[in-house]
Nucleic acid binder design. Structure first.
Length: 315
DNA sequence: AATTTATGCAACCGCGCTCAA
DNA sequence: CTTGAGCGCGGTTGCATAAAT
């Protein structure tokens, strides 16, 4: 039926080098627009959508393809996700060389990883962990965070008024992001990280740098010196640093009201919350870090991750 | 070494928005 | 004002590869 209308069967799936060439050639001639005319001109048996996607995600110049997110980039994503929600395209405008798809994939991978870590760190869960306990295993009981909630709020207030056309100046404005001190939620020593990794990191302009795996280069030369005179810790595992950053963001989110976009939930709190709240169902009363509204703002299906696991009584 | 499982990424799908006819 | 094409975005899926067993 539909295949007949154009007498050309639309191709789907992975792109071949020749197709890429054709697409690049088209963009050179006509610019990155009128994607559907690529098909109508008979250049490629691909939909305009597919062409556009290929261009945006793979062929556009200056993309950082095949390069892991640096810690700076991670931080930007985490903070902006907290601020904007899942507005990947918007977040990507702050990350030169990254596409919305990159950001989206990065985030979902991260969410999964974190969920996994938190699941394996459930205290009663002896099961077959094979001693590969996560660093989060030893996170102390949650206490009320003591920190200011400046960073994200400031970003909000300073940028929201000109949201519509604010430039991707996230990293050009040194004032924009200042990490607040890590709250007591995570004891950096237990994480074998040291406070200095987790606090007071400011963004520096992210001009084009050679693409390197940031985690192999820790500590990062472009980051300002840590405020504390703690010895630089050994980097445990790459992911752990990243996850600790995420926890840092969790903590800050807990201290600030979710914005209109609604925060996507840091899964970490689910785990922490369950432990804390099992003691006092009147959460929020005894535990200011867990206001009702915080949980109420989460999408209902976001607990799905954890629901797939047996209850503690089954362990 | 073979098999299974986990992970990351590329690409597709569906929805909603914009804008020209 | 309506409508339909084009486009952009966010969510999801499926595959390839890495890691674990």
């Amino acid at each position: 039926m539909e295949g007949k209308k154009d007498e050309v069967v639309m191709r789907k799936g992975p792109w071949m080098a020749e197709e890429d060439e054709i697409l690049l050639d088209y963009v050179k001639k006509y610019g990155p627009r009128d994607w559907s005319s690529i098909r109508s001109k008979g250049l490629l048996p691909r939909t305009g959508k597919s062409c556009r996607l290929r261009w945006v995600n793979k062929l556009k110049p200056d993309l950082k393809t095949g390069c892991k997110f640096s810690v700076e980039e991670e931080r930007v994503v985490i903070d902006l996700q907290a601020k904007f929600g899942n507005k990947w395209a918007r977040i990507a405008t702050y990350l030169p060389g990254r596409t919305d798809n990159d950001v989206k994939n990065f985030w979902s991978t991260r969410q999964k990883r974190l969920a996994r870590i938190l699941q394996t760190s459930q205290p009663c869960k002896s099961q077959k962990n094979n001693g590969k306990s996560s660093v989060l295993h030893e996170i102390p009981p949650l206490e009320a965070p003591k920190f200011s909630s400046t960073s994200v709020e400031e970003v909000s207030s300073s940028s929201s008024s000109k949201d519509q056309n604010f430039p991707p100046s996230y990293m050009e404005n040194s004032e924009v992001i200042k990490m607040v001190p890590l709250p007591d939620l995570v004891n950096p020593n237990l994480l074998n990280l040291g406070t200095n990794n987790l606090t007071q990191l400011e963004y520096t302009p992210m001009e084009k740098k050679p693409c390197v795996d940031p985690l192999s280069q820790f500590p990062f030369p472009q980051l300002p010196q840590p405020p504390l005179d703690l010895p630089l810790p050994l980097l445990p595992e790459s992911q752990e640093l990243a996850d600790t950053n995420l926890l840092n963001v969790f903590s800050r989110q807990m201290a600030s009201e979710p914005d209109e976009d609604g925060p996507q939930l840091p899964l970490g709190l689910l785990s922490f919350g369950s432990e804390v709240n099992s003691q006092n169902s009147g959460r929020g009363d005894d535990n200011p870090a867990m206001p009702d509204s915080y949980f109420d703002d989460f999408p209902t299906d976001m607990f799905d991750y954890l629901e797939q696991f047996p209850s503690s009584s089954e362990w």
